[in-house]
Design a binder for these strands. Structure first.
Length: 754
DNA sequence: GGGGGCTATGGGGGG
DNA sequence: CATAGCCCCC
């Protein structure tokens, strides 16, 4: 046994230490928020290495690259170098790395392309069209999600076509042909040598299940210790892969899963809590450790979290507790509009920084939907507070980057039809819609890729120049990819493609920033080539091909950037905040229809998932938690009025400092019917108006003394109107300065019949 | 047959 | 408010 002189075991409480030292056999760790889960995982890996397990025999699966990187960094701190040889990473990235070596065994090229969501959608759109189906009924997003769910449940197109439940459900939704779209989609992905995100899991499953050349045994023996983080977020497919790797004759069953049913927030992508229950059945004699002591937050926050999650019926019994002391009470901020919400949050941030000397990086603003970020961005900028937004459009989703990547993809894998379609006419080469439709038809009829079509048919007339030119360009680029390093080849591609030239012609600030982005991409490739680190488990020199670069970036998201280095306020969705913690957290937009989302209102189990999401949100806070909501906000381009979120009302009054929360459960909850509901009377909210049905009255109808409804300020009475058609209106709901001067020319006013 | 501008529609969370 | 599909002009 090595002794690295690190007393890591003494830094753990009894239960944590138990989980770390239980290295043999199946282990389940139920870990409440802030209970030192990451510490247990990393120390467990460090401990394994310490007692003589080779790092490359350890497989640690996480859900985000960030979690994986953090884990590796922390292992390194405990055991020194060698940490990077642990196979730690996301399911998708580690499996794609394995498939990069093994894919040829199951009929894919090792240089397979990875289709992102846009590629998938574009392909599905094309299929819907080719089947002459109504694209309004067959919503691509909905179809894609059906296919994704099918794959996550190991439902092949053939099985789908024979499953009466699925077929009748589709029929009920007026989309009976989904099974056919699914079949064609799988066929076309395969033909293009492409895997979508689900395939990275599904084909890994196929590889192990079909077991060509007895490849399964290789990985079963390599990964003698397996750990899965955030197990509550695994879907059936991921669980089946886990079993293929760890359940076999003579297996030591050294599997450790870590999770928290109360933080399960990904059922929309097929995650199922059943996996936790199933685990106990599939791995008998599992040792269970429950981490309930919270080291992160103060008592008011922990209390609120326990209270809120108590409203859920489905849960494993557990209660988190802390001895961190009561701390500061939870603050609730109510505002009239979303814009005011932005201002108040920015003001509070300044106040908190002054009062408690918080740095920007101690503070996070968490919202339910990425679209909410805009108002906060505006006000933070106005106050000169540095911030960074996560999620939304990541670098690799920018158009110019995707264009450039598409060229590289086509060079690496010429069968990649989605890449080809993206750039065959960008920059403009005179290859339009009609030509593409014909080429696609030929490709479909012969079951070959479009590249094969254009390189095999005889080009006639103008096509000789247009398509011929494209083929020559790509072939030139391919040559460079073969003989030059990834950086030089992509530099050549950027010029030869004409992208650089095209963007240089655009002198707008957007055009300039696009050039900068292309340069940044090229720099990233250069860095990739020059990086001398070796990837987990690999003994051979690192593969520096463009193919591997593509693989590494296709799984990258914005959330993977490092936050700690720079002093900025963090803005992100609650989903991407999972696993993170901040001294001060703002959870914003706490309104019905938003949080909980209007999409989830009709199903109780979806409401419960929203509640777990809220639980995740509030347990990110260490010292200070601020909850905000707005009476009105712009949603879908219209002003909407939403009630205060039920979740806010579930927070115990004793934990808040608020006198603002006067409207507790005095009013009956209106019935919610899935769609936007009318704003109820009372509640201290704005008066009755259905924003959806709001009709502005003509100027002539606005007269002195009439009652009017204003979309932002609510009900009011016209006091006077001057010659310039400016009305002075006294609004019932505005406490300070109730009289506003409204320009009738632009005003959105509706006369109320009393 | 290709390109560009306009209208209509839909709109959650993420690997 | 962004994108897709449509229509019109070259």
């Amino acid at each position: 046994m090595q002794n690295v002189g690190h007393s890591y075991l003494s830094e753990l409480n009894d239960i944590q230490r138990g989980a770390v030292e239980a290295t043999e056999g199946p282990v389940m760790v139920i870990a409440g928020p802030g209970s030192g889960k990451t510490r247990v995982l990393t120390y467990r890996i460090a401990h394994l290495i310490n007692i003589g397990v080779a790092p490359w025999n350890i497989l640690a699966l996480t859900f985000t690259n960030k979690a994986a990187r953090e884990m590796k960094d922390r292992i390194e701190k405990v055991i020194g170098s060698g940490a990077h040889k642990v196979w730690a990473g996301t399911f998708h990235s580690l499996f794609s790395r394995i498939l990069r070596v093994e894919a040829h065994r199951i009929g894919y090229p090792n240089d397979f392309s990875i289709y992102d969501t846009d590629d998938s959608k574009s392909l599905i759109r094309e299929i819907i069209k080719s089947l002459n189906l109504d694209s309004k009924v067959y919503n691509v997003g909905a179809v894609r999600s059906r296919i994704s769910t099918a794959k996550s449940n190991l439902m092949s197109p053939q099985a789908y076509a024979q499953n009466d439940d699925l077929l009748s459900l589709d029929k009920m939704n007026r989309r009976p042909m989904i099974f056919k779209i699914y079949e064609l989609y799988v066929k076309k992905c395969k033909r293009a040598g492409a895997m979508d995100f689900d395939d990275l899991l599904l084909q890994m499953f196929n590889l192990l299940y079909k077991n060509p050349d007895n490849v399964r045994a290789k990985y079963q023996s390599q990964f003698s210790y397996v750990m899965v983080d955030e197990f509550q977020d695994t879907n059936s497919l991921q669980y089946e892969i886990l079993k293929l790797l760890t359940v076999f004759d003579g297996s030591p069953h050294n599997v450790c899963i870590v999770g928290d049913d109360a933080q399960s927030i990904y059922s929309f992508r097929g995650a199922t809590i059943e996996n936790i229950l199933q685990f106990e059945a599939d791995f008998p004699a599992v040792q269970v450790y429950k981490l309930e002591q919270n080291y992160r937050s103060t008592n008011f926050i922990v209390d609120a979290a326990n209270e809120v999650i108590g409203f859920n019926k489905k849960q494993i019994q557990k209660k988190i507790w802390t001895d961190n002391g009561d701390g500061r009470k939870i603050k609730v901020i109510k505002t009239m509009t979303d814009s005011e919400e932005g201002r108040r949050v920015a003001d509070s941030i300044i106040e908190q920084k002054n009062r408690w000397h918080y740095a920007n990086k101690d503070i996070a603003i968490l919202y339910r939907t990425n679209a909410q970020s805009r108002v906060f961005e505006e006000h933070l900028r106005r106050h000169n507070i540095a911030y960074r937004i996560y999620g939304g459009l990541s670098f690799y989703q920018r158009k110019e980057i995707k264009d450039m990547i598409a060229y590289i993809r086509l060079c690496v894998n010429h069968k990649d039809d989605e890449a080809l379609k993206r750039i065959i006419n960008y920059p403009k080469r005179g290859i339009g819609k009609t030509t593409m439709e014909k080429l696609t038809k030929v490709a479909d009829d012969n079951e070959i890729s479009i590249w094969q079509v254009i390189t095999q048919i005889e080009l006639k007339g103008s096509h000789k120049r247009t398509i011929g030119g494209f083929i020559n360009d790509i072939k030139e680029m391919q040559k460079r990819v073969m003989v030059e390093d990834a950086y030089k080849a992509s530099l050549y591609i950027s010029q030869k493609s004409g992208i650089i030239e095209l963007l240089k012609a655009d002198n707008t600030p957007e055009g300039k920033s696009r050039i900068e982005n292309i340069t940044a991409l090229l720099d990233a490739i250069k860095e990739f080539v020059e990086d001398d680190e070796i990837s987990p488990g690999e003994e051979a020199p690192e593969d520096k091909s463009l193919a591997r670069f593509l693989q590494s970036i296709s799984l990258m998201t914005d959330a993977d950037q490092d936050t700690e280095q720079v002093d900025v306020v963090t803005l992100m969705s609650v989903h991407s905040a999972k696993g993170l913690e901040y001294k001060s957290v703002f959870v914003v937009g706490l309104e019905e229809n938003l949080f909980p989302s209007y999409m989830s209102l009709s199903l109780p189990e979806q409401i419960e998932e929203e509640r777990r999401l809220f639980y995740v949100a509030i347990t990110r806070a260490e010292e200070m938690l601020t909850l905000t909501y707005a009476n009105s906000r712009y949603q879908f381009g219209n002003m909407r009025f939403n009630d205060v979120s039920r979740f806010l009302e579930e927070i115990p009054e004793s934990a808040t400092d608020s006198t603002i929360l006067t409207v507790k459960k005095d009013f009956p909850q209106p019935k919610i019917l899935g769609n936007f509901k009318k704003v109820g009377a009372g509640r201290g909210a704005l008066p009755q108006v259905d924003a959806g049905k709001f009709v502005a009255s003509p100027i002539t109808a606005i007269k002195e003394g009439v009652s009017v409804m204003h979309l932002k300020f609510g009900r009011g009475t016209v006091v006077s109107i001057d010659q310039r058609k400016v009305a002075t209106i006294r609004f019932d709901q505005i406490s300070d300065n109730p009289e506003k001067r409204i320009m009738l020319q632009y005003a959105k006013l509706q006369v109320l019949e009393d």
